[in-house]
Design a protein around this nucleic acid. Structure first.
Lengths: 171, 171
DNA sequence: AATTGACAGTTCGTTTTTAGAACTGTATGG
DNA sequence: CCATACAGTTCTAAAAACGAACTGTCAATT
C-alpha cells in the first residue's frame, strides 16, 4: 500500500492517518500546541533531522494543518502556525495524552496535569455523544454506511470481519 | 532519536506514540475495533506484508494492547483481541475518525455515520471536561507539571517554546 | 573588514525499515 | 495424494530515515 493512497480510502480514520499518522508529524503537532512556531524550535525540541523536519512541515502545510507565515523580510523567515484544521486536532492530542496518562505512566505519576480554566479544576478529557452527552462506549455505538461509503469500506465498530476472500484492502 | 526512547520520555503523548503511533498499528487497531481477530483477516483487510503484520501484532501484544488467545489446538492458532488497555483507545480512534469526517471528506460525504444506542441518534464525538462537562478548547486549558514531570519536559498547551539553546530533545 | 552566530533550509552517503514474493509447517477435505 | 486454510518466517530489493556537513542571508561583534 502506498501511503498516499490512504487519503483516497473511504474511511475517515485512514484518511486522517494519511495526514498525521506518522510519528514525527504527531510530535511536530505536539510542539505546535506547545507554541513552537519556528524551524529551529522544532528541530531542537524534537531532535528530528532537519531534512525530515522540512519535509514534514511542507506536508502539513500542503494539507492545510499548518500555515506558513512570514515574520520577517531581509532573510525571508517564516513561522508555522496551526490553522483551524490544525487546531481541530486538539481532541486527538488530548485523547492520546489521556491514554498515555492512564496506561503509560511510571511510578512517579503523570508528567503533567490539565486545568480547565472554565471550571478551575484538574480534569481528564472525556469523549461524549454530541446528542445526549453520555460518555461513549464502543459497544454502544453502531455504524451505518454514510453517503461516502463504498461496498466493502471500513467502519469503526461493527461490520463483518472482512472474511478472508478479500484479495486486497477494501476499495 | 530511537523510537523505543519515546516510551521513556516524560510526555504521555510521546509514550502513546511510541506504542501506537505508526500507521500500521493504527490501521491494525481499526480492524480490531471492526472485530477482526485473526492473522489472515488483518492481512487481507489491510494489504500489509505478512512480515510487518507479525511484527506489529507481537509489539501490540507485548505492550498489552492486544491479547493472543488460542482458539484451536492441532495446528495451534491464536486470535488477537483487544485488552481493556486496547479498548481504551476508542476515544483516540473516534477523535481521528471525527477529524477525518470534518476535514477529509470528499463531495460524497462521510464514509459512515455513528449511531449512539443509548439515545438512538446519529452523533459526533465531543471531548469534554470530566469536571464540568463543557467542551474542551485548547485555549481554555492550562497545564501544570505533574509528579512525573521533569524540568524541560513537554506539555500539551502552554509552556515555553523550548527556546533554542536545548541541545537535543528534552530528557 | 572579517568573523561569528542565528536561522532555515538542502545535499549526500550510510543505516534501518518496508515492500513483495516465496517458502515452511500443520491439519482438514476431497 | 493433492489442494486449501491458516499463521507465520525468510530473503532480496526498494524506500525512508539518520547524521553530518554544507549553502545562503543577514545582524551583531571583533
Amino acid at each position: 500500500m502506498k501511503w498516499d493512497a490512504l487519503e483516497e480510502e473511504p474511511c475517515s480514520l485512514a484518511r486522517t492517518i494519511g495526514v498525521i499518522g506518522d510519528r514525527w508529524s504527531l510530535l511536530i503537532l505536539r510542539e505546535c500546541f506547545l507554541r513552537t512556531r519556528r524551524f529551529e524550535g522544532f528541530q531542537s525540541a524534537l531532535g528530528i533531522t532537519r531534512h525530515l523536519l522540512a519535509e514534514r512541515l511542507k506536508k502539513l502545510v500542503r494539507q492545510g494543518v499548518l500555515r506558513r507565515i512570514p515574520y520577517q523580510e531581509s532573510p525571508k523567515r517564516h513561522e508555522y502556525i496551526l490553522t483551524q484544521k490544525g487546531l481541530d486536532l486538539y481532541p486527538v492530542m488530548m485523547a492520546l495524552v489521556h491514554w498515555g496518562d492512564t496506561h503509560m505512566v511510571d511510578e512517579r505519576g503523570r508528567p503533567l496535569l490539565h486545568e480547565h480554566r472554565k471550571c478551575g479544576k484538574m480534569f481528564d478529557p472525556v469523549m461524549v455523544c454530541s446528542e445526549c452527552g453520555e460518555p461513549l462506549l464502543a459497544k454502544e455505538v453502531h455504524t451505518h454506511p454514510g453517503p461516502g461509503a463504498r461496498p466493502a469500506s471500513a467502519k469503526l465498530p461493527a461490520g463483518k470481519p472482512a472474511k478472508a476472500k478479500t484479495p486486497k484492502h477494501a476499495t
